[in-house]
Each structure stands twice: as structure tokens, then as C-alpha cells.
Amino acid sequence: MTTPALAYKVLTGAQRAALLADGRFAGAPIDLADGYIHLSTAEQLVETLRKHFAGQDDLWIAAIDLDALAPQVKWEPSRGGQLFPHVYAALPLSAVIAEGPVDWLDETAVRLPGSDTPGTAPA
């Protein structure tokens, strides 16, 4: 499997504010409980939003440069056996190459920050 150079972290407004203020993000409660920061690929992002953030407002997507975090990133099986990028360290603001609010283009796609390509749900 060729791993992408970018992955995405969904943040609440409060988590985004903390990342911007502190210059790092230690993780959401689920990340802290699991011992790593959960990220999603562009293809996994819509399902992640639906499964873990349904009905929530004030959500943000951060595009993460995985090469900048290479030693701390592990690709591990999760939902349905898919490989997900997990970061075994705090997420530094310097690894965030773009960010923006969750912007649904339709029921199956969201706008990816810093890209004209939408993240879409698998067919």
C-alpha cells in the first residue's frame, strides 16, 4: 500500500483554539484514552465525521503533513480492517499545512482544507 502524504484530523472549535494557542494538540479524549492521535485519509474522512461527529457543530478539519511526523506515524488496522494513520506523539501546529471548517459539499463529500479535491465517502 502506498501511504498518502496527508491525513486529516477533525477538531472541535475548542480543540482547534487550543492547538492554535498552544502550538500543539495532545489529543481528544478518545486519543488520550487510546494513546495516539486518530487521523483519517481523505477517503476515510466522511465516514469518520458520520460515525464520531454526527450532529455536532463547530467542527474543523486540519490537514496534516505526515512526512513531518514520519517517526511518530503508524498505519494500523481499525474500522473494517482499513489502515488508519495514528500519531504516537502530540500533534505540532507546524505539521498542520491547512485547516478549515467542516464544509459539506453534499451528503457524500466534504471540502478538504487547502485542496480543490473533496473528501468523499466510499461508494
Rank of each mutant, 00 (worst) to 15 (best):
D22V: 13
R24E: 13
A33Q: 15
G13V: 09
I30F: 01
A18G: 10
R24S: 10
I30A: 05
A17N: 06
A28L: 04
R16T: 07
A33P: 13
F25P: 00
I30E: 02
A14M: 03
G23A: 04
R24V: 14
F25D: 04
A33N: 10
R16W: 11
L39T: 15
R16Q: 14
P29Q: 07
L19M: 09
D31E: 04
G13M: 08
L32P: 14
R24I: 11
R16V: 03
A21M: 04
Y36V: 08
G23H: 00
R16M: 09
G23M: 02
A33M: 13
R16C: 10
A14K: 06
A17T: 05
A26S: 08
G23E: 01
T41Y: 05
L32Q: 15
G13P: 06
Y36L: 14
Q15C: 11
G23V: 00
T12A: 11
G35M: 08
A28P: 10
A28I: 01
A18D: 15
G27Y: 00
G13C: 02
P29K: 05
L32E: 11
P29H: 10
D31A: 03
L20P: 10
S40P: 12
A33G: 09
A26D: 04
L19S: 12
L19G: 08
A17R: 13
R24N: 07
G23N: 07
A33R: 14
R16I: 11
G35P: 11
D34N: 14
I37W: 00
D31R: 00
I30R: 06
L32G: 07
D34G: 09
Q15Y: 03
F25V: 00
A33H: 07
A33V: 05
D31V: 02
I37F: 01
T41I: 06
S40M: 07
I30C: 03
G35L: 03
T12D: 11
G27W: 01
A26V: 12
A14W: 05
A28K: 03
R24A: 13
A14E: 08
A18T: 13
A28D: 14
L19T: 06
A26L: 11
G35Y: 02
A21Q: 14
A18M: 07
D34M: 09
D22H: 12
G35F: 06
Y36A: 15
D22Y: 05
G27E: 02
D34A: 13
F25N: 00
F25G: 02
T12N: 09
T12M: 10
G35K: 02
D31M: 01
G23T: 03
D22K: 10
T41S: 06
D34E: 12
P29R: 05
P29V: 10
Q15E: 09
D31I: 01
P29D: 09
A21S: 14
D31G: 03
L32R: 12
T12K: 07
T41N: 06
A28H: 08
Q15N: 04
G23F: 01
P29F: 08
A18C: 08
L20Q: 08
L39M: 13
I30L: 03
G27V: 01
R24K: 14
A17W: 08
A17I: 06
